[in-house]
């Protein structure tokens, strides 16, 4: 009900609207291309530094074509920082041989391991960021459905997307109601009201689930979601979408042959 506008950033907040070739490509091709690209990157030997340079150029190229500002891309890369923190310890704690960098003794295998994590992680996350920036969530779900992910799973994800705002709105209204009656917990034992609110929220969501089910049954739902998205990709679209993953796979193979 009300409060439905609170969560815009929650679901389609990553989308940068546009009409570039990348935006228009069918979602299932983009997802498949992303998957193959990431697999190729992960399978590349870490010593083939040149290969990672090529991947980075490809990513920046796609970002430019998709009109995703490189600054935005870099800003969104912050999401991987917590994971990289772990990589930073590897050169300090790794085994010998050790090298001296600026007077600090670092482990050489540790350095390679850190590089491996940073390079592959950054490339994979960048590619995902571009996918998220060019594809609305609803289309992503349709793409997964066309890739034959079971419709029960895409439906569950779809419900989550659909009702996130509704449930967040409900939680916000309950929080406002608590505060309006002077609730301001300072100590852990005062948090009882919070716990019972969580229970109430659960019950309300459960009841909503029942009402949604009634609405579905009223429109002929008999246990399986109908197949709604039959649009198949054209040959041209397939070729265009295959360009990036094919390039990545070739680079990966080359890196194995000529380290």
């Amino acid at each position: 009900m009300g409060g439905g506008h609170l969560g815009h950033a929650g679901t389609d907040g990553l989308l940068i609207p546009g009409s570039t070739v990348v935006h228009r490509a069918p979602a299932q091709l983009k997802i498949a291309a992303l998957l193959v690209f990431v697999l190729a990157v992960v399978a590349t030997p870490r010593e083939a530094v040149w290969a990672f340079a090529v991947y980075a150029v490809v990513i920046v190229g796609v970002a430019l074509v998709a009109a995703v500002p490189v600054l935005t891309l870099l800003r969104r890369l912050r999401i991987e920082v917590p994971f990289l923190g772990f990589a930073l310890f590897l050169p300090l704690l790794g085994s010998s041989p050790r090298v001296q960098v600026l007077g600090v003794s670092l482990s050489q295998p540790g350095l390679w391991a850190a590089w491996n994590i940073v390079a592959k992680g950054t490339l994979g996350v960048s590619a995902s960021i571009i996918l998220a920036a060019t594809t609305p969530v609803a289309e992503l779900l349709q793409g997964l459905e066309r890739l034959h992910l079971p419709r029960a799973l895409t439906a569950i994800a779809g419900f989550m997307v659909r009702y996130l705002d509704v449930i967040v709105g409900e939680a916000n209204r309950m929080s406002i109601a608590r505060q309006s009656r002077g609730y301001d917990p300072r100590w852990l034992w005062q948090a009882r009201a919070l716990a019972s609110s969580a229970g109430t929220l659960f019950v309300r969501s459960f009841e909503r689930g029942e009402r949604v089910h009634l609405a579905m049954a009223s429109r002929g739902y008999a246990g399986s979601m109908p197949e709604l998205h039959r649009r198949v990709a054209t040959a041209n679209e397939r070729v265009a979408a295959a360009a990036v993953p094919l390039l990545a796979v070739s680079v990966c193979v080359a890196a194995h042959l000529v380290p």
């Binding site: 009900m1 009702y163 509704v166 009402r211 609405a215 009223s218 002929g220 008999a222 109908p226 197949e227």
Partner: peptide
């Protein structure tokens, strides 16, 4: 259920698909 259409009180219960198009298509697709 094809003959009788019910519009429920809370549209958030009735609109459960990720897009308006999918939601309106749900019934006829079934």
């Amino acid at each position: 259920r094809q003959r009788v259409a019910i519009v429920f009180q809370d549209p958030d219960d009735q609109l459960f698909m990720p897009s308006v198009r999918d939601d309106v298509a749900f019934g006829p697709a079934n």
